[in-house]
Design a binder for these strands. Structure first.
Lengths: 195, 195
DNA sequence: CTTTTGTTTTACATTGTGTCAATCGATATG
DNA sequence: CATATCGATTGACACAATGTAAAACAAAAG
């Protein structure tokens, strides 16, 4: 693929990203994206098979641009379970607001689109893997309360940390990002650990 | 409004309800509903202004048919905070699976439809009111942990009990209804109450 | 018998996604 | 220089689903 083609592809990805964030992931049409990117609507279909494909490529692009990998590296640095938990909530709690628009777009179409559902589950698998790391660390520290299995504790953590919950607490109930993070930490610690 | 008109209206509501439950609230078209009700598609528009209006009427109809009011009465019978909490999770946890289809339909359109969003918020206001009753009871029992205000505790309870969380834990992570209820009770008690 | 009411039938407008074919301009390659 | 090739443009079109409009019709009520 030539250089100019890659350029156009990137312009489309950036346009999608920005439009999604500006409009909270709603009411963004393919023609809007094309206009913003400065190309024809049909050019978009030369680079992406359909709307779902474009959005999935966009979230991957954003993850890479935002350096989700590096942020997760700082998460990996912690040793004991409680530190890991703290770091996970910090990193994840700071990341969600940065991808709110595109995430909403994914959520609102995943019900009617199997590919989108799969892409979303992949992202959530990422979160679940991080949760599993926290839980197993808590377990080997002897801190996981005895009513939990590893799996149920992971399920609950991932659910509590879900994008939908973050959105409800912050944007609907008006919690600040800091309040969200400290409260979720407290709830997780009280729910999962002994005493 | 005449008797035959009411009859048709009911047939449409029942058809909507059943189709939504059968199809998990997805891919149900106005023409499908009309066919199931045994009327013309246009007849549906004689009784309901649009799709959103129909779905909102359906959830109200189902709430009434299922006797949500009566079930909530048993919830009101409890006196102390811990009993109220137990009853709320029982009633709500048993109710959600019965309205799963229509609830999904509401959720998937609320992003693009302000009326639907308002209707959904009304339902959630119902849950929040119940949560508030639990929290204030816990408070007057002296059981609410001191890091919570009434409002933040209500927000967290309503979020933890949200339909989306129930759906994720049961249908995605395979929790049984009983496991959901007992686990959520435990988490709420540990998170909200002292010791 | 006539009017009203609920419904049917047919047709059409609209919106947004996705496809197709012809064309155009620049850039390599012989 | 001539000519393929490639990316993009243009304009047209198919399609699905919602919603609207008008004319006809059947049954019940006055």
């Amino acid at each position: 693929m030539s250089k100019s083609s890659d350029n156009t592809r990137n312009k489309i990805l950036v346009a999608t990203w920005h439009l999604m964030e500006e409009n909270q992931g709603q009411g963004v049409r393919m023609s809007d994206i094309a206009k913003r990117a400065g190309v024809s609507r049909q050019a978009v279909y030369l680079h992406f098979a359909n709307r779902t494909d474009l959005i999935i490529a966009t979230i991957a692009y954003v993850d890479q641009q935002k350096g989700l990998g590096e942020r997760m590296a700082s998460f990996n640095a912690a040793s004991d379970g409680l530190h890991l938990l703290d770091q996970l909530v910090e990193v994840w709690g700071d990341y969600m607001p940065e991808i709110a628009g595109i995430s909403r777009a994914m959520l609102s179409t995943r019900n009617s689109d199997a590919d989108m559902a799969a892409a979303w589950n992949k992202t959530m698998g990422c979160l679940k893997a991080a949760c599993r790391k926290v839980i197993t660390a808590l377990e080997s520290d002897g801190l996981l309360a005895k009513n939990w299995t590893t799996e149920t504790a992971v399920d609950l953590s991932a659910t509590l940390l879900s994008f939908q919950n973050w959105e409800q607490l912050t944007s609907e109930y008006g919690w600040s990002g800091e309040h969200y993070k400290t409260t979720i930490k407290t709830v997780l610690i009280r729910a999962l650990t002994v005493n």
